[in-house]
Design a protein around this nucleic acid. Sequence first.
DNA 1: CAGTATCCAGACCGATACTG
DNA 2: CAGTATCGGTCTGGATACTG
Lengths: 98, 98
Amino acid sequence: MPSSSYRCLEDVVGCKWSVSVISAVAEGVTRPGAIERHVRGISTKVLTERLRKLTAYGLLVKHSYPEVPPRTEYSLTARGKKLARIIEQLHALDREGA
Amino acid sequence: MPSSSYRCLEDVVGCKWSVSVISAVAEGVTRPGAIERHVRGISTKVLTERLRKLTAYGLLVKHSYPEVPPRTEYSLTARGKKLARIIEQLHALDREGA
DNA sequence: CAGTATCCAGACCGATACTG
DNA sequence: CAGTATCGGTCTGGATACTG
């Protein structure tokens, strides 16, 4: 075990897919199918996996509507929004340093 | 693409080792050997690799002293300090959400 | 459309040994 | 002490096909 408490967020921020997914949801792309189309290159498997984790970590909330066909929407929690803001700082730092 | 600019920092923040290394340097542990001892579990290979990248990304500066035995010290750049601050926010968010 | 299951190539990283 | 090189196991994630 490493020294820090960088438990969950290490693998959230660490994954470019997580970051893309959070950005997508932040931009209003809330449904799995739409996200999959929006985030170029992501696979179903990884998307599902990421959505699960992000939800488990309390960054996203899942809303399922038992309709036909089924519909699911995800939204950012307060915590997720905070993270989105931090990610934005990272992007800013990235750009500025170029 | 939402995260198109998430080039370098994705693999910096994404790696728990990078984070640990930056934290170590921030704490005043500046020499490779010391860092290796300080960051439990890190291997020489990964440490070297991380130091290279962090330096290449302008987050660390390397100072080599041509002595015998050789001595090298790393320090945070202004940019590295900003990153350290952002990492601290992540840790905070991590803790708070626990 | 949402979500699951399987297969498999390749990346990653830890261990180790070695050079200057 | 700083840094490089190599080998090999593990785990990630991409492609694909399938269920409710």
